[in-house]
């Protein structure tokens, strides 16, 4: 019953905002997809004629709908190429591959209340989380901030689903989300979940910690392009290969493009699956992951090639 990779085709594409498209995916063989938990993501593989893009996208539909999965893709101006490919090349009927759903952003079932904070395309994991919240009858609030009215993806649908529990903040109307105000009036036992741009995630984490929220009540997810950087080279001890990592490509992607077999899952520095042993580095490792402890990062013996890079002339890893 291994579901590591499933062939799907695009059943429908809908433009939701000027920058966001909603894709409906169904199994190529017409079968059922697995049910999933709210906040799950899948990794979509796109075959761009020799180069394979792999991007993680949150599942937005109802976890009980096993006929189709729904994802939304924001066109990223500074993209590694995957989102532009999804926007420009993928059409209804296109074939893609997806992984089984993985959840690194689940609702904590012991929470007394749940505060969901979304910025822009960060609304997507909450679209499925809200199904879990409704089914379990949990208490919640949704706070959704976006640039201007035309960028508020799914806001009409959310108004209908959530009623007074949903709060919208439209930047162009001058309405700002006051994170401190929202968090300081929550009862004990509340959990907060944030998904959005890096600055918003950082602000929520900092404010919650500053207000004394326990670490385990603070949840965040940040998808977006892993930070690019300077190009560098990586030498592989087992195969003897040397791989160039271009500035706009992750080390993981560059290794895969070179035909190196490497395990991976979240591609966002959270799951730990692609952890790679560093044998030598004559410069600095630039760790961007949330998986390794500070001590492990400082030791310089491990790195997460999905998001982390190096600034050096010689990097040798145990691959």
């Amino acid at each position: 019953m291994s579901l590591n990779s499933v062939n799907v085709k695009v059943a429908a594409i809908e433009r939701v905002t000027p920058l966001v498209k909603h894709f409906t995916l169904v199994r190529e063989d017409g079968g059922k997809l697995p049910p999933f938990s709210g906040g799950s993501h899948i990794v979509v593989s796109m075959d761009a004629g020799g180069k394979v893009y792999r991007n993680a996208y949150s599942l937005m539909g109802s976890p009980e709908d096993t006929d189709a999965y729904h994802i939304s893709v924001r066109r990223q101006e500074r993209s590694r190429g995957g989102s532009v490919f999804m926007h420009d090349k993928v059409t209804e009927g296109s074939a893609l591959q997806i992984t089984a759903p993985t959840n690194l952003f689940a609702i904590s079932r012991m929470g007394r209340k749940h505060v969901l904070i979304a910025g822009g395309i960060g609304i997507t994991p909450f679209m499925s989380q809200l199904h879990d919240i409704a089914r379990n009858g949990f208490d919640y609030e949704l706070h959704y901030a976006f640039r201007s009215p035309e960028h508020g993806a799914f806001s009409d649908q959310l108004k209908a689903r959530c009623g007074e529990r949903a709060h919208f903040y439209v930047d162009s109307n001058g309405k700002k989300l006051d994170i401190r105000e929202v968090l300081s009036r929550q009862p004990l036992g509340t959990h907060v979940y944030v998904c959005g741009p890096g600055t918003m995630v950082a602000a929520v984490l900092e404010t919650a910690r500053d207000l004394g929220w326990p670490e385990r009540h603070i949840h965040s997810e940040q998808f977006g392009a892993p930070p690019g950087g300077e190009p560098f080279k990586v030498a592989l001890a087992k195969s003897g290969l040397e791989v160039e990592v271009p500035g706009d490509t992750s080390m993981l992607q560059a290794l895969e493009d070179a035909g190196v077999e490497i395990d991976s899952l979240c591609r966002g520095g959270a799951c730990g699956r692609c952890m790679t042993e560093v044998l030598a580095c004559d410069g600095e490792l630039l760790h961007h992951d949330d998986y390794l402890s500070e001590a492990e990062k400082a030791s310089g013996k491990k790195m997460m090639p999905c998001v982390s890079r190096a600034r050096c002339t010689h990097l040798l890893v145990n691959l």
Partner: peptide
């Protein structure tokens, strides 16, 4: 524990 936290549906 790390291994189990990462375990995926369909891959028992």
């Amino acid at each position: 524990l790390k291994y189990l936290l990462n375990m995926q549906y369909g891959s028992p």
